[in-house]
Structure formats: C-alpha cells, structure tokens
Design a binder for these strands. Structure first.
Lengths: 232, 232
DNA sequence: CCAAAAGTGTTATCGCTACACCCATGA
DNA sequence: TCATGGGTGTAGCGATAACACTTTTGG
C-alpha cells in the first residue's frame, strides 16, 4: 500500500466547550484531567479521534460518554494547531462547542470524569490553550446567537420568556428591554404558548412556551437578528 | 520523553480554496495534482503541515509559494476528517479560503504548479472531498460577505463601483439594484472617491474608489448588512 | 447623433428603539 | 394590602426596497 511516507504524523484530538443553562446561570462543564501532564488540573472535555471515526463522530462519542446524552448540539468552530500547544507531543485539536440542557445530563456519569459545572464568568484557569478555546467559543456563540436561534438548544422543552431573556442577557452580558425582546421573539413565530405556568419564581407565575420545531428547523439558517449590534 | 503512546497518528494537511476576481468574473485557482494518487487530476492547492509551523502558517507558506504573495487574506473555515477522505492514508485537512487580487499573483510561479484559474461556475470536478470543500467555502464566503466587507480583499487598490457591484452579484448569483447598493456602500463610509476614471469599459468612464483602510479595519467586525437576506 | 454604461432621488413601508404602566398572586 | 415579578402598547425615527430617468462621451 502506498503511503505519503516522507511526512510526519500528528495526534488529532477534539476538545469540547460544553455550555449549559440551568434557568438561571450560564455554565460551562470542565473536567479534572486524569493523566499527565497537568494531571488534576481543570481542562475541557476532549479525546483523541479514533481511526474509524470522524472528528464530528469523536466529539459526539466523547460527549455522550460524559453526559449520557445522544444528539447533542455541536458546532465545530476552530482547529488549533500551534506546534507547542501540547508540551508532550504535537497534537492538533479540533474544537467544538456543545449546547446542552443542563437538566438532562446524568450526574453519575459526569462524576466518574470528575466533571463539574462552573459559572461561565468564574471558571478556573485551564490547561494548555483551553482558555483561548473557551474565549473563542464564547465569541462564536455570541456571533451565532445574534443571528440564529441556537440558544434554544440550552433550554428544556418548556421554558418561560423571563428565562429565555435571562439567557440572552447572560450570553451578551447586557440588559435587554423585555417589551422589545418579546416582540422580536413573536415575530419569528418560533414560540408556542402553553397553558401551564411556572410558579416557582414568582407568585403570578410565568407562562411556559415550547419551540415550534418545524419552524425552528426551517428558520434556523435565516438571519433573524436577535441582537442589535453583536460583537464579532 | 513521555508520549501519548497508545494513540494513532494522522497526517495533517491544509487545503486552500483560492478565490480571485479579475474585475469581471469570480474565479477559483486549481492545480493539477503532481503525484499519486489521482495524479493529473484537478485539485485544491494544499500541503502537509510542517512540524514547526501552525496550520495558519502552513496555509500562508503554501499560498506564497504558489502566488509569490505575502499577507494573503485567509480564513480557516472547517476541518475535514472523514476516515476515508484520502484513500491512501488517513489525512485530516484543515481548510482555508483565500481571497486574492487576481492581478497581483505571479504567473510564472503558478505555472510551475500547473495552476489555472477557472470561472467559479464551471470549475472541473476535483479529487477526494475537494468539491465539498469548495461548496462549503462558497457558502461561508457568502455568509461572511453579507455582514462584513471581506470582498474588498478580492479587489485591486483602485476599483470602480460597477466592478464592486458586479463582484457582489457574482458571489450571490443575483442582480442588485445599483441605487440601493451605492447608498448602502456610502453609508458605511468605507469608500474614498478618486479623481481618476476607468475608461476601459465605458465611454463615459467610471470613477475609481479606494478603501478607507482605517475605517475598514475598524468596521471589519461589525455587522454591516451588505445583502438583504443572505443564505446561510 | 446614438449607443452604452454611469450616475442620481423619492416615496412607502417596515423594523427598531425608547419608554412606563397595569396585572396577578401569595404571603 | 403590598411586594414581586409578569405582561402589555405606542410613537418617532431610521433603514430598506421599489422604482426610471438623465448624463456623458467615443465612435
């Protein structure tokens, strides 16, 4: 069998920035690294790409090992390839961000990996170039969420408008006018109002909504302008 | 020295979708592959990532070898990792698209690689998954150009408004109203009108413009909405 | 003088922003 | 009854889209 013999081979890994939202706070899941180098330091969840799988496949596999979930929303956003990024051996890392409904993940499994959820704003320092990856993922998430309804991937099936608004406010670290926000949402036609109310937060209660999945899929790629002047 | 010994290593390459615009047509530069497999088939320009360089570095190096140009506009847009994408040996490819002023590249060098410019719309079939890469690059270029003034990277220093409009029309394969187009451009403040006219196309002549580089850099990341309803 | 391309304005509509008050309820 | 959070409407402004005619000039 022919090979491109003169060339060096490298390790190829995926790393996942896992975002979650518990209805109140935007969080990121990190694991305590189980092997050298940097053992016991905080790190992104990642792993090597197997020989029979694509990077997308590897990311899905690794996430479902960690969370027990299938069909997680994943977006490949950048590949990191600095020669010195892993001090042990050259490793190319294909980075993904994942959006998961924080209520669905399975705690037991996560604990096996010493995984923990951190508030995004006070996550610890990470190994290698993982802090850079997180910063890039945040940027990319902001960029995408300004134009497309990605953030719904973070919410449970039923959610209230105040929750949703809170989510946007956290992602953009800003305050949003609730009347304008709702008008924008309604104009997308993506929401279906339910009978039921969430009374856990206020006395009056807030109506639950669910996504109109058909419209969601149809409009996912169009430009919806959720935010006025998103940063890049 | 420790290594992650149990893992398989892969080849890591970059491939570049090179877009060019000659004032009339949007083109793509392809090369005739010089080695097996698929020798003499049309292919994207690419190469392996060296051990001492990043993928960005490799892409810049490869492009400057091909074109003689430095500081080419490059955007990493996706990494391809299907196990079977290269039939000889597993190869991960980090794909970039490049925007170059077609008048600047050096013909002699390109010929050494058997490179040729093709009209984007009638490019030949390419090897491996390169057709997919081109399709993805076009999508990404459309997406970005709808929001940011990237397309100026394809133009020479002096260009006319009709040229610019023609470029947008080709990228989006649509017809644009010239009055609205100009108004939008003017509102960005990105253009500086020159005294000189280009009389090569019409008798009356069209004024040349140049980019206001300061504003260009400042506004590059903001959302400028060049196109009404861009596809994703 | 005419063909061919460059350049220019107006109007109607829509979407965005800014802004403040009433409602429902449990304690 | 009151404190708390949920929910609603409007007016002004700016951006967008649709639309057609005049200008220049080389041949």
């Amino acid at each position: 069998m022919i090979k491109y013999s003169a060339q060096a081979r490298s390790l190829v890994a995926v790393d996942c920035i896992i975002f979650g939202f518990d209805g109140e706070n935007l969080k990121i899941q990190l694991i305590k690294r189980g092997f050298e180098p940097e053992k016991d330091q905080w790190s992104l969840m990642g792993g090597f790409v197997g020989q029979e799988e694509s990077a997308d496949g590897a990311a899905q596999r690794i996430l479902s090992e960690l969370t027990g979930l299938k069909d997680i929303y994943l977006e490949q956003f950048k590949t990191y390839s600095d020669p010195g990024r892993d001090p042990i051996e050259r490793t190319i890392s294909i980075a993904y961000f994942a959006l998961i409904d924080i209520n669905k993940y399975e705690k037991q499994i996560s604990e096996r990996y010493h995984a923990e959820w951190f508030l995004l704003k006070d996550a610890p320092k990470l190994i290698f170039d993982h802090d850079l990856m997180v910063a890039d993922a945040k940027k990319k998430l902001r960029y995408n969420a300004a134009l497309h309804p990605v953030l719904f991937e973070l919410l449970p099936e039923k959610f209230t408008v105040p929750q949703l608004q809170n989510l946007y406010e956290q992602v953009y670290d800003t305050v949003i006018d609730n009347r304008n926000f709702i008008r924008k949402l309604n104009s997308t036609g993506l929401l279906i109002k339910l009978e039921e109310k969430d009374k856990s937060v206020s006395k009056r209660g807030a109506f639950y909504f669910k996504l109109d999945l058909v419209k969601y899929k149809a409009k996912f790629q169009s430009f919806l302008n959720f935010m006025p002047h998103p940063e890049a």
